[in-house]
Structures are given as structure tokens and as C-alpha cells.
Simulated scan of single mutants.
Amino acid sequence: MLKTYRGSCHCGRVKYEVDVDLAAGTGRCNCTFCSKSRSWGANVKPEAFRLLCEETDTNDYQFGTMSGHHRFCKTCGLHAYGDGYVEQIGGAFVSINVACLDDVAPEELASLPIHYADGLNYNWPNSPKITSYL
């Protein structure tokens, strides 16, 4: 069910609202960025995301194909969301960090479906052999 959540970084400087159906699925990946940051994402279309702070409160990190922007708080350094354009996943997207949602109960988080992606081997549709560390 589509629901509006509020999210923020650790210090609260970066804030957003997002309309997302978390029960439709979240994702974790074993690429070097996601595995090192323990990223837990959910993708939405840009119109479902509302940044509630100045974009200048964030830093931008890109790597690889440069198709995604990883947005970090300039103060606390937490990766709260990202955005970009990848044709294979439907074009423009915003990926929220599920762990940064402020108003979601632990019971809801524990019940969310997770798709594990083998990004380390560019085999995104398939799960890696080992997922327990993600």
C-alpha cells in the first residue's frame, strides 16, 4: 500500500518525504558501494520524492557509469538517498535509504521483502550466492 514516509540523515539536516509501497519490495546489493555502506534501498519515481531541505545541504558522489548520484549530508555524512537515470530500471528514479525513514516501526521493517542483487558481477536480476552479510 502506498504510504507517505518522512526520512532524514543522522543529524536531521537532510530531510525528505517519499510516497512508497515498501511492501512491494526493497533491495540490497553486493556491489562495492552497497556492501561497504550496507545500503538498503527502495526506488520511486522522482515525482514521489520531495526534498525538504536545500540540495546544497548534500554532497554528491558518483562512480562507475556515473548514472547514479549518491546524496550525503554535508554535516554528518550519512547517505540518505540517491537519484539518477537508468533505462533498464525505467529511467529516472530516486532511491531512498530505507534505514533513514523516521516514521516506520521496527516490526514493519522486519517484515519487508528484500531483493538481493548481484551488482558485484553486474548480474543485477539475480541474487549473489551469499546474502547474509548484506
Rank of each mutant, 00 (worst) to 15 (best):
I114P: 06
R6V: 07
P106Y: 05
Q88D: 09
G25L: 03
G82L: 11
K36T: 13
S35E: 14
G82T: 10
K15E: 06
I96Q: 03
D60W: 02
I89L: 07
G25I: 02
A80Y: 04
Y61W: 13
G90P: 03
N59Y: 14
C34F: 02
E55F: 09
D21T: 09
A92M: 03
K45L: 14
I96H: 05
Y116Q: 01
M66Q: 12
K36I: 08
G91K: 13
F33Q: 02
W124R: 10
V94S: 02
W124K: 11
I89D: 03
C100S: 10
I96E: 05
P106R: 07
A105H: 13
W124D: 06
S8P: 07
A110Q: 04
H79D: 06
N123P: 02
D60S: 03
W124C: 09
F63R: 15
D19K: 13
T26N: 09
S132A: 14
K45P: 01
R28H: 04
C100H: 04
S132C: 06
C73W: 00
A92R: 13
S132H: 13
E55A: 14
S35Y: 10
M1T: 10
G84P: 11
N30T: 00
L78E: 08
H10R: 00
D60A: 01
L22K: 12
I89E: 06
Y116T: 01
L2E: 15
Y85L: 14
D118P: 11
K129F: 00
S111Y: 05
K36R: 15
Q88L: 10
G64Y: 14
K36P: 06
G64H: 14
Y85C: 14
I130C: 06
T56E: 12
I130W: 00
N121L: 11
A99C: 07
V14T: 07
C11R: 01
T56A: 15
D103M: 07
Y5R: 04
